[in-house]
Nucleic acid binder design. Structure first.
Lengths: 213, 213
DNA sequence: CTCGATTGTCTAGCGCTGCTAGAATTTCGT
DNA sequence: ACGAAATTCTAGCAGCGCTAGACAATCGAG
């Protein structure tokens, strides 16, 4: 009955093209350069086409942010196990191609996750800005939060709560995770804004991990 | 020879009026509502007058941010000594009129400063956004940084380095201050973005202070 | 295979933004 | 009181997000 499959597939492709193009422009020239006219020209369609996929520019940014959360989660997961094992080379996903930080001989799982987080923010500043700085209408810290958001938070929590498995204070673990996340987020944004001494990045990370362990 | 004093004074008044109005609109309706037309109408002048005081809108935001740093420094200083003493009521500056947090019976100086920081960010979210989130062209972490910026950082550093006065590691103190600031900034922004559980604010602050002490 | 209907796309334009050139006005020194 | 200088305003430009209505391509039925 429905051989509209091709049209649907083409439409989905264009959907992804819009997001990838928006992301690429944002990453190279900043989000201010991502205008509807510019984006439409880049995908070789007219502006109204964008609005047949997304309700508006905000929704495009939100979609990029959501993808970012999924990629961040994957990066944290990958580096989490790698860091716990030996700190081996990282494969797959969005991280490949970036000159990721040290990959130290032996690093705590907490340190590996923290480093992965800051590496992600540094490697994809525009996506990170879409996730946190630009006020997308994504809700947080509630059951209504989209899945990728809660997943990312979950990896952070797991990396904190591995030492004391059954010590009971799960409420405290949630709070510790929030503080951990806040510290990482602060380091990420202040670093991106050139508000911290660039050379001391590793020093700050080590200190943070030491204080939280 | 120069009785232009009145004109100069009026001009300075108008300068302050512009900043105060911009800040007020931003604080009540967000920075998006601060347009040059809106601002010009509010001060009862035409738009070009704004450009005889500031090079552009960005410079207005930057000026508000700079004022914010001075006020933050004062708030931290005040609450720092108050917290070290007994945690008494706070007076003066921008904090008056706000229902500042607890004012606990006895709190560490570190805790008092941290609380003052988060209170400031919560009480003046638009100013705090101008200081950090909006990408003003203010430089940091260099000798060229404007004085109020280095002052605010200095208060944080002092609150961290009071225990071990002459233990030598001043380099480490600088790094500890950066991490402290990053954690506070992360808590402030994530809280403002409703990304943390509102009820656990005190819990997070206590945990952070305990980990850094 | 053709034709009407449906779907998809584009052109053109609205109200808004930050910003500025040049005209009109006010204020000043003589 | 008048010409010069400083100040302020009117009007407009290019670009923004977004949308209505005209146009073109594709589809299903006869």
């Amino acid at each position: 009955m429905p051989p509209h499959q091709r049209r649907d597939r083409q439409r989905a492709d264009r959907h992804r093209l819009i997001l990838a193009t928006a992301r690429q422009i944002a990453e190279t020239e900043g989000w201010d350069a991502v205008t509807t006219r510019r984006l439409a020209e880049a995908i070789e369609y007219s502006q109204p086409v964008l609005y047949s996929h997304f309700a508006g520019k905000d929704e495009i940014v939100a979609a990029v942010a959501l993808d970012g959360f999924a990629e961040l989660t994957e990066a944290l997961r990958t580096r989490s196990v790698a860091g716990a094992a030996a700190g081996g080379q990282v494969r797959g996903g969005q991280v490949r191609g970036d000159h990721v930080g040290g990959g130290r001989a032996s690093e705590s799982r907490l340190g590996a996750v923290a480093r992965a987080y800051l590496d992600f923010a540094a490697a994809h500043p525009a996506v990170y800005a879409a996730m946190f700085t630009l006020h997308t209408a994504l809700t947080f810290a509630t059951p209504q939060s989209p899945e990728p958001l809660r997943d990312a938070f979950g990896v952070l929590r797991d990396s904190l709560g591995e030492g004391d498995e059954d010590t009971g204070d799960e409420r405290d673990l949630e709070t510790r995770t929030e503080v951990f996340w806040a510290a990482l987020h602060g380091l990420a944004t202040l670093t991106a804004g050139h508000r911290l001494r660039p050379a001391q990045a590793d020093e700050r990370l080590d200190l943070l991990v030491a204080q939280l362990a």
